[in-house]
Design a protein around this nucleic acid. Structure first.
Lengths: 337, 337
DNA sequence: TTGAAAGCGCTAACAA
DNA sequence: TTGTTAGCGCTTTCAA
């Protein structure tokens, strides 16, 4: 493997000059640079990235701390981060936490060990004090979920506003017994969506009934969504609409309804969240809130890049637009309900 | 940031000794080692990985060259690779090719640039001569798809055998007009499955009819599967069974049937492949061939590890067991068909 | 069992 | 515009 000094010898220049052309500094005369390029070509020289990284003390790697790459919601964000990282000259390393806080800490350790120049956190729980320690020393950005009390910047959608839109739509359709399927986690999106649900009900003069709130599992799985919906639908005075915090849960709710002979949307309205896939396989196609996953990832990466490269006045918060998508699973309340 | 010589000074030993305890060489006296550990503790020393990698000229990173991480089939393999890489002290870098051969080459370039110590190739097309160049110089393993003519080891399932089992099951159910939805790609799995389909038909004395073979898109998407099935089902003498090369395509086939009022499995049998997800959301649950995705990834990583670390007699081929899973979408042929 | 010292390949400060 | 040179922090050979 040829080194920079082999190239220098071949081109009859010093290693400094070779280094300069490698790094595209313009203080090199064209003729000299050409000689260097010729030598590089001839020797099939590839700069040793290991040496360069060491010298510059940077890894050109960014870390993505994600709970799970199997979930399509994350995988779209991941793709957005990955593509953008590449454009910016970074490699994106995905660190799978499998939802364990322990693993999350391990991931952040990689920053200390200089395995990565910065990190993007997905699925941040609120209220983890231990993170603070990293805030001053490492470039970190939160994507999609975030803890407002932690001094890391974040990019996300406006979950509160999105659910207020959902609720307004439901009211316009005549619904009053509106249930929600949430999850018992510590995501800010969950809190915000729940708050929007309750606020909307309150402002409409409707009570927030405990038995209209059900919980799916932490994994937002189809099965747990179905079970939550079954509970909701087993009541004598059952809801006429269910707002679900994910499409997969909504799919579960529809399956639960189908098995009970309840038609969607004729007898029951179901609304999902994310619009990530599977929403248009079988009828009824799901009415949902679309999140710009790829863009979320892309902007998180850009934000991180600015932090790593010491942008003067880095943005602290970025809110991307969601999109309320009307399809088939929501309908007008039947008058006899 | 403390360096190894700070530690040496603090512990009153030489840097060589510190290095020895860092690398757990047993030629260090216990008392000396303890002093070193104490110094490390006191100074909160973290070895500089960048320097170490440079010195050892290794990156401790392995590359996964994948077409797409959004596809759950891949994401399970990816998880298997990632977890195993971690256990073995490596980080797994996912390089997204978006199905472009150009990007694939870019990915392999990273090996030359020493960004990674080895690579795992997913979704290898057959017949790419350019890969040969890497064969001698870099540790590479193929996972799931592979080119038998390329001198890289691989791990996969026995696609031929799996489809022969599917066909035998179909014959046992009385089916004779059996269609298949394949895809026009250059994957060995596709060839092998098609060959098994044709061989089985032949051995049963049944003709291979051109209009019983349809093609979904290169992405194995729901929509393209549905369209392919629509073509198949539009014929007057339509098939009584369809074998699909993926579950998503099978889902599309079921949707196509439903829209035409054809019941599955009563009027039409549909069989999928992969068993990766969505096979058990709505009835009929899909009868399919399960692939051990996570294990595929795990073993590919182990194989790569052996190659990187110069195992004497590395395995060249590893075939993992698939699992034929009978659920609801396949049934006995009706006598009046 | 330990230490001295060379050197991995590159970048960048300084000098010319 | 170009060259000389001093490291970056670590591992490892050789000697003691």
């Amino acid at each position: 493997m040829a080194t920079i000094s082999d190239v220098a010898r071949e081109a009859q220049v010093s290693v400094a000059t070779v280094s300069r052309v490698l790094n595209k500094q313009d203080s090199v005369k064209k003729a000299t640079a050409d000689r260097v390029y010729a030598a590089i070509e001839k020797l099939k020289f590839e700069p040793n990235i290991l040496a360069r990284n060491f010298r510059r003390s940077e890894s050109r790697v960014i870390l993505i701390i994600a709970p799970n790459i199997t979930n399509p919601y994350y995988s779209h964000i991941l793709t957005g981060i990955g593509d953008t990282a590449n454009e910016l000259g970074y490699s994106a390393l995905i660190f799978n936490t499998a939802n364990s806080e322990e693993r999350e800490k391990e991931g952040m350790e990689m920053l200390k060990k200089r395995r990565a120049d910065g990190a993007i956190l997905l699925a941040r729980n609120q209220g983890s004090q231990w993170l603070e320690e990293y805030a001053e020393n490492y470039p970190v950005v939160q994507c999609s979920e975030y803890d407002p009390d932690v001094p890391f910047p974040h990019v996300s959608i406006d979950n509160y506003k999105a659910v207020r839109e959902v609720m307004a739509y439901l009211f316009a359709l005549g619904h009053e017994r509106i249930a929600t399927i949430s999850s018992k986690n510590r995501y800010i999106s969950t809190d915000l969506r729940m708050k929007a649900y309750k606020d909307a009900l309150g402002e409409e003069g409707l009570p927030v009934e405990e038995n209209l709130v059900a919980y799916a599992g932490l994994d937002y799985s189809f099965r747990s969504g179905k079970e939550a919906a079954e509970k909701l639908l087993a009541q004598e005075n059952r809801p006429t609409a269910i707002f679900c915090i994910s499409d997969t849960i909504a799919l579960g709710a529809i399956a639960a309804a189908m098995e009970k002979g309840i038609r969607v949307p004729e007898d029951l309205t179901v609304i999902g969240f994310d619009d990530v896939e599977d929403t248009m396989m079988f009828h009824p196609y799901i009415t949902t809130v679309g999140q710009p996953c790829y863009e979320l990832g892309k902007n998180a990466m850009r934000m991180l890049y600015d932090r790593i490269n010491g942008q003067l006045d880095p943005q602290h918060e970025m809110v991307l637009k969601h999109k309320f998508i009307i399809r088939e699973s929501a309908g007008r309340r039947k008058q006899d309900d």
